[in-house]
Design a binder for these strands. Sequence first.
DNA 1: AATCGAAACAACCGCCACCCT
DNA 2: CAGGGTGGCGGTTGTTTCGAT
Length: 224
Amino acid sequence: MESRNIGEGVKRGAWSKEEDTLLKKCVQTYGEGRWHLVPLRAGLNRCRKSCRLRWVNYLSPNIKKGYFTEDEVDLLTRLHKLLGNRWSLIAGRIPGRTANDVKNFCNTHIVKMTSSKLVEKTKIIKPKPHKLPKLAMSNNKPIFNQEPQPNSQWRSIVPDAAETNKSNGKRLYPIQKGSFSGGGTIEKSNVGDIKCPIQTDVGDGVTVSEFSMGFWKFFEFDDV
DNA sequence: AATCGAAACAACCGCCACCCT
DNA sequence: CAGGGTGGCGGTTGTTTCGAT
């Protein structure tokens, strides 16, 4: 790939080893974030976005390189069916893989698979009414970070990981299953089948749609 | 060995949400 | 509250690599 200098003299195109070294040193010294300061701190003639992208997709020590394993493909396929093109969200559930990796993989494999006649169309099962223990509510909103009840089925609510479902604007709250301790590596043995959404009346006129996949459980609140 | 098309990978762009002033 | 700056995301494009002919 040729390097191009366009516009304000900021370098574009492929990164050299020297640039990688400068960026690595900078992030190791100052930490991730504050990307607008990185070009200055690192002495790089690159824009903030380019620096961030290079680190996130290539230089970060957490990145797993190489082919996707069978388990990863299996998990990725399930997550893509559930979440659609939410690449960063999917990548967050597959240790070591970046959103760009996931996106590239899906663009070359999953799109092909779903357009193939070899793959059966996913059967859509209509949600069924389902009663769950009533959630603690305040002003028609669920209260998070509550202590798990002795007999509660779910615990470790993760409000920081809440996402907005772009198709309907509702909020998705991932909740970790109580039988699994911690948020460690996803193993195939921990990942069960994706279940169809279940609608639950939690009281106060609030309906919750529930998805579950392995030790992750998603609640989608109709009132937000 | 050369050529060509497909696949894989890397990077850019535009947009949007959030935060701060 | 409004506006600007920043970070992050998804879509897209460009380049490289690989495999078949």
